[in-house]
Design a protein around this nucleic acid. Structure first.
Lengths: 165, 165
DNA sequence: GCCTCCAGGTTCTTTTATGGAACTCACACG
DNA sequence: CGTGTGAGTTCCATAAAAGAACCTGGAGGC
């Protein structure tokens, strides 16, 4: 499979990664969530080449994750803002941050802390079941193919073996 | 910044991405969560080159996300299994899947459905606040620098502007 | 003892992407 | 007129990915 074919896959994860699975894209989006909007600010903070940055921003706009909006005329200047589609990536970003905090620790602990405006507490994000509200773990979830699709290739489990171990 | 320097960054997201931010790594991990363990099975299902697959598996083992375990001797054969560190990536994967389901839909809806063993229901993963239990959205969360760290560069907000818009 | 098969890789060659730096363009300022 | 600024492009050398062929260390058949 080639990278450009990833968006043709039936798998939702593959299609999601065809947009954000690239090396720099999620780092760009992290800065978007922190409020960065302008080309030069991205460049300064990220330290990636203008070339790559311009390319990633263009692709994110094409994918509908960011939108360009003028913030002044004469000379026309535009900034990049998260769309609703982009904002919905927040669980992905926060999950990655917490995984990094936990498993790739720096010297002084997490570099940033998150506070929930709603309750005012310093917090983490926790993934829970939409139906029963219990925290989710890999081994508690089973996967079923959508019967309307005929090319879903779930692996056949070997006897006695189950997911994740 | 170069890709190889990403693991030196103070940002937890950057360090997490230094492990899983690569084009193919999360697709490999998706298959791990589906129960795939052997080199040839990965190759058949993913359709990526053996070269890249071998490299990604090696790096995931070095990062402690997967471990190699012998499943037979003479000839020695090994399989790749998720470690606890790897299993903790589940929220990232599931969040990406749901984002893909929602924003990059295929023709017949989501290709797979998830069922929670605990409650038996078909479900989605929802990210909630660890303290108050309410669902989290980007605009509800503020970020504060860890006072023990001196090189956290949060962007300065322009007046009247707040996160995420 | 030789031939072939299999899982699990390596090696080799050709494309594609990235890193680094310089260049463009449309204006604003003084 | 010269300089500055935001937002990019262009150009070239290097690094990574795609594709295919080759290697290795047994097992199994004959």
């Amino acid at each position: 499979m080639r990278w450009e074919e990833l968006d043709q896959e039936p798998c939702s994860l593959a299609r999601a990664l065809s947009v954000v699975g690239d090396r720099w894209t999620l780092v760009v989006l992290r800065d978007c969530f922190l409020g960065v909007r302008r080309f030069d600010d991205f460049e300064t903070r990220l330290g990636i080449t203008r070339h790559v940055l311009a390319d990633r921003l263009k692709k994110l706009v094409e994918a509908g994750v960011l939108e360009k909006r003028p913030y002044q005329e004469r000379p026309r200047r535009e900034e990049y803002r998260l769309t609703d589609k982009g904002l919905d990536l927040y669980p992905v970003i926060l999950s990655l941050v917490h995984w990094g905090d936990r498993h790739m620790p720096g010297e002084h602990g997490p570099p940033v802390r998150h506070r929930h405006r709603h309750c005012g507490a310093q917090m983490r994000g926790v993934l829970v079941c939409s139906e029963c509200g219990e925290p989710l773990h890999a081994r508690d979830v089973t996967v079923e193919a959508n019967p309307e699709m005929d090319d879903v290739r779930l692996p056949v489990r070997r006897a006695q073996e189950q997911q994740g171990g």
